[in-house]
Computed example of a mutant assay.
Amino acid sequence: MLDIAEELHRWVGQGRDVAVATVVAVGGSAPRQPGAALAVDGGGTAIGSVSGGCVEGAVYDLCVQALDDGRTVAERFGYSDEDAFAVGLTCGGTIDVLVSPVRGGVVPAALAAAAAGETAALARIVAGPDGLLGRALLVRPDGSYEGSLGGPPARDRAAAGAARALLDAGRTGTVEIGEDGSRCGQPLTLLVESSVPAPRMIVFGAVDFASALVRVGKFLGYRVTVCDARPVFATRTRFPEADEIVVEWPHRYLEAASAAGGLDGRTVLCVLTHDAKFDVPLLEVALRLPVAYVGAMGSRRTHEDRNERLREAGVTEAELARLRSPIGLDLGARTPEETALSIGAEIVAHRRGGSGVPLAGAHTPIHHDGPPDPAGGPGDTAREAVAGEL
Rank of each mutant, 00 (worst) to 15 (best):
R300M: 12
P374R: 06
V226M: 02
E389L: 14
E389Y: 12
E248G: 05
E338D: 10
D180A: 15
H350N: 04
A123P: 09
V203T: 13
G134P: 04
L111E: 02
A276I: 00
L111K: 01
V175C: 13
D228M: 04
P358K: 02
G150C: 02
Q65A: 12
A30T: 00
P31K: 00
L67M: 11
D68G: 13
G48W: 00
P374Q: 06
A58D: 03
H368Y: 13
R322N: 06
S49M: 01
P199A: 11
V216H: 08
A115T: 01
R309V: 15
Y79L: 15
T381P: 15
R171Q: 13
A296Y: 04
V216Y: 05
S195V: 06
D168S: 09
G178R: 03
A120F: 12
V40L: 05
A5G: 02
V216P: 02
L122A: 06
P108T: 04
T316D: 06
H251N: 06
S80C: 13
G13M: 00
V18R: 15
A385S: 14
G261N: 11
A210F: 14
S342C: 05
A116W: 10
G27P: 12
L191C: 13
G78M: 01
L138H: 11
T273L: 02
V280E: 04
E319R: 10
